[in-house]
């Protein structure tokens, strides 16, 4: 276990280092500096700005400085918003995004898995068909279409849900569904197929032969084994929800990290772009590590030491 962890953490750090390096040099490969405007600034001003943001130093020194900054959790100032640091943006935006993202992961698991189980238990009956049609629709509708549909139908036409902002629990419903819709459908399909496979196994027949109640057979013996592929999908789900937040937060006007990220793409705020990318990468790598460790606990057949 210790060796496994050490290995994983080392490869995690290498990944992060490479991500930082790639983003740094990509951002510095952009033609024109961050202060290139339609109306050119006077050379004196540019000089002063470059000196302020240390852009006049050689590239390798900037790189080393940036690395040092990342290690001490300092991602530098924003180029476009005066007096705001990337750290502040993340500190403000991430809790909002995490609230909605966490909510939609819960939604994916708490709705997706039961739907998949029902569908597997009632194979080829109407329940199964309804779930499969919904799940197929769910993977074909892009999140931005889902989000606009929710606003159009539930906010604009029916007036049930607020259309933007994030002040009450009602505000969370729309974004959560739009964010989680795709993964929910995917998890339902995944649970269904793995449940169907598990229900064919001998140990299920044994459990039934012992006279266990259907509830115990399904809940304890079948579900536990059927969930293994679902657990391995949690990592990609987090990634999907993270990228999904770019558009969903934009559409619902939620002041989360995704919205900042997309805005920084729009107004070419390179430090924010770099900082948030690195933060996302670090967050994901950490989540994947946690899922991997959990995976070892859930499925004892997988030796974490390998």
């Amino acid at each position: 276990m210790g060796r496994f962890l050490a290995n994983r953490i080392i490869s995690m750090l290498i990944t992060l280092f490479l991500v930082i390096t790639i983003t740094f040099f990509l951002m510095h490969a952009i033609p024109g500096g961050p202060f290139t405007r339609e109306k050119p600034l006077p050379p004196k001003v540019i000089e002063a700005l470059e000196a302020k943001y240390k852009l006049d130093q050689p590239l390798w020194k900037q790189y080393v400085d940036y690395l040092k900054g990342v290690v001490t959790f300092d991602l530098g100032p924003s180029f476009q918003r005066v007096g705001v640091t990337v750290n502040e943006l993340i500190a403000k935006g991430f809790p909002v995004s995490a609230k909605i993202g966490g909510g939609s992961i819960l939604l994916v698991l708490l709705v997706g898995i039961p739907l998949g189980v029902i569908s597997a238990l009632k194979q080829n009956k109407w329940q199964d068909q309804v779930v499969m049609v919904l799940a197929t629709l769910g993977v074909t509708i892009p999140s931005f279409v889902m989000a606009t549909l929710i606003i159009y139908i539930f906010s604009s036409k029916l007036g049930w849900l607020p259309s933007h902002g994030l002040t009450s629990w009602k505000h969370m419903i729309g974004p959560m569904i739009a964010l989680g819709g795709f993964s929910l459908s995917f998890v339902a399909r995944l649970t269904r197929s793995s449940m169907l496979e598990v229900l064919q196994q001998d140990y299920i027949r044994t459990a039934r032969a012992k006279g266990l109640s259907e509830f115990v057979v399904v809940g304890k013996h079948a579900l536990k084994n059927a969930l293994i592929p679902v657990v391995s999908y949690i990592g990609p789900t987090i990634a999907a929800i993270l990228t999904g937040s770019f558009v969903v937060e934009k559409i619902f006007a939620i002041p989360g990290l995704g919205k900042h990220f997309v805005e920084s793409v729009g107004n070419r705020d390179y430090t924010v772009l770099m900082g948030v990318t690195i933060f996302y990468a670090a967050f994901l790598v950490l989540m994947i590590l946690i899922v991997d460790i959990l995976y070892g606990f859930i499925d004892p057949r997988i030796k974490v030491g390998d």
Binding site: T15, V19, I22, T23, L26, M27, I30, A239, A240, L242, T243, F246, V265, R268, L273, T277, Y280, A281, L284, V285, I288
Partner: peptide, 13 residues
């Protein structure tokens, strides 16, 4: 490990 979307966005920028 990093979602493809992030690379693609960086490259697009």
């Amino acid at each position: 490990t990093v979602p493809l979307m992030l690379y693609v966005i960086m490259l697009m920028v």
